[in-house]
Amino acid sequence: MVFGLMNQTSMQAPLLLWQQMARMAWESQMVIAWRTAGMMGLVRQDAEEPQRMVIEKANAATEAMHAALRAAGRGDRADKVMAAALRPYRRRTKANVKRLSRKN
């Protein structure tokens, strides 16, 4: 069913984007906790973890900017542009939680 320019998918898009952001925020807190515990010596951590943490942020920011620009250049809706920008960060936080929690 279509209401003017809004359809069911476009009405759900902001909720789905919020859900992805909330999941990433939770995972980010887990990564911060694991890395902090590693820096304090409470859990084992690779020696290059602090350097990895800095480098991955710069790489994710670059990827996110490019993804957002590509989506905007295609004329995608704002929620799709934001989702494209979120994807590189989400991929990294998910991988970091898996990697850091597996070691211990």
Rank of each mutant, 00 (worst) to 15 (best):
M40K: 12
A67E: 02
D46K: 05
M1L: 13
R87S: 06
E27K: 10
K98T: 14
M11V: 08
M82F: 14
A84D: 04
M82G: 06
G41I: 08
V81N: 01
R23F: 06
V43D: 01
Q12P: 01
D79F: 13
M82N: 09
A25W: 05
S10G: 06
A67V: 03
M82H: 11
W26S: 12
K80S: 14
A64I: 03
Q12W: 14
T9K: 07
T36P: 01
T62I: 06
T9R: 13
T62K: 10
V54E: 05
K94M: 02
E48G: 05
A25H: 13
A83M: 03
Q51F: 13
A22V: 15
E63W: 07
Q19S: 05
Q20R: 14
G38H: 02
A85S: 14
R92L: 10
L5H: 02
L16Q: 10
A13C: 02
E63V: 02
A95Y: 03
Q12E: 10
L16C: 01
V31F: 08
A68Q: 15
A60V: 07
P50M: 01
D76Q: 11
Q45I: 04
K94W: 11
K80C: 06
A68H: 10
P88W: 09
N104D: 11
A47T: 12
R23Y: 01
K80W: 13
M40G: 02
M21T: 13
V2C: 07
T36A: 11
A85Q: 11
Q29D: 00
P14F: 15
D79C: 06
L15E: 12
K98N: 08
V43K: 08
A85V: 09
L69H: 11
R92H: 04
A78M: 14
K80Y: 07
A58I: 06
G38D: 12
I55Q: 12
Q51S: 07
M53R: 08
A37H: 02
A84W: 06
Q8S: 11
K94N: 01
N96E: 04
A60M: 06
I32F: 15
A61G: 03
Q45S: 08
